[in-house]
Design a protein around this nucleic acid. Structure first.
Length: 304
DNA sequence: CGGAGTAAAAGGCACTT
DNA sequence: AAGTGACTTTTACTCCG
């Protein structure tokens, strides 16, 4: 679902204010006044570059499609139309045919290029189904290119590696998309996706920080349309839980959900454990366990 | 229905063989 | 690459108001 930017300048249905902001970091449209989230199905239509001065803008702006990592030739090579427009002499026709054939050979020359072409289009499609912003698509493309350059694609499925690169990009850019989500969208089984991802991380010797509870809180509160005040309380509880050493070893999702559940109680927003469990893709039992610990430990803190 | 709680099975991770 | 062990999460279930 692609929406033009012009369609987005509308009134916020929550507060009537018309200051809507594209939050490309979490791929959401947010009202700057009340924090209401209008849509999460956002496509970033902006340029891939930034300019800070008019001079810079002048040098960067250009005609034609922007250069992109999403095309195997970065969108730079020449394309020759497949048809003959106009009447040509047979000799000319033959020449055109030869030119076209060579152009084709040059454009998608070796096996790496062919591999790239398939992978990049697959990643574009995947990012679109996952409603990921353009920046992620580009990052995923860069990761895949790096892998291809290191010849890591050998003996592995292109689709599997493409999905893993996309997941990698999400983790690097702190945009929460779970392995299951990427797995569902790509049709790659979860375990294979996870192992491909680990393989890439190992090969690149890169350290990817785990997803922190606060990232989940931000996403879940948008997903469940929670009050921004409630979200704030949840962040505080989550920080307090961390100080009380309740977070190590536990999944970030469970900490976030429990903190948010408590925050809702405090703020008087009636939400069920079930709602959180569904949104965060875990069970009520897990939320109860974390939440019980928090209540106990944080009450001790209060009584001291 | 929403929630508290439990035991046992399953899952994921660091670490070894 | 398979095995191990400590640990978390899920499954499946009972009970409460």
């Amino acid at each position: 679902m692609i929406r033009q930017r012009s369609n987005l300048i509308e009134r916020c249905p929550e507060c009537g204010n018309s200051t809507i902001l594209q939050d490309s970091k979490s791929a959401e449209l947010v009202c700057t006044n009340c924090g209401f989230v209008l849509t999460t199905d956002m496509t970033d239509m902006g340029p891939e570059w930034r300019a800070f001065t008019p001079e810079e803008r002048k040098t960067k702006v250009r005609v034609g499609a922007p250069q992109t990592f999403m095309l195997h030739d970065k969108g730079l090579s020449t394309k020759i139309d497949w048809r003959d427009i106009g009447n040509f002499a047979p000799k000319k026709k033959a020449q055109l045919y030869r030119i076209r054939r060579w152009q084709q050979r040059i454009r998608v020359s070796d096996s790496i290029e062919k591999n790239l072409a398939v992978a990049l289009s697959e990643m574009s499609r995947l990012c679109e189904t996952l409603n990921l912003p353009r920046s992620i698509t580009e990052t995923a493309a860069i990761i895949y290119r790096k892998a291809a350059k290191k010849r890591l694609t050998r003996g592995r499925s292109i689709h599997g590696l493409a999905a893993a690169s996309t997941y990698f990009a999400c983790r690097q850019c702190r945009i929460v998309r779970s392995l299951s989500e990427v797995s569902m969208a790509s049709g790659i089984n979860r375990k294979e996706l996870a192992s491909n991802y680990r393989f890439l991380v190992r090969e690149f010797r890169s350290f990817v920080p785990p997803v922190k509870p606060r990232h989940y809180i931000t996403r879940l509160s948008n997903q469940l349309r929670l009050n921004s005040k409630t979200e704030e309380i949840a962040h505080k509880i989550s920080r307090a839980a961390k100080n009380e050493k309740l977070t190590s070893g536990r999944g970030g999702k469970s900490i976030a959900s429990a903190a948010m559940y408590i925050a809702c109680k405090i703020a008087g927003e009636n939400r069920t454990q079930r709602e959180f469990a569904e949104a965060a893709d875990l069970t009520e039992v897990t939320i109860r366990n974390r939440y019980r610990e928090m209540i106990n430990r944080l009450l001790i803190m209060v009584s001291l």
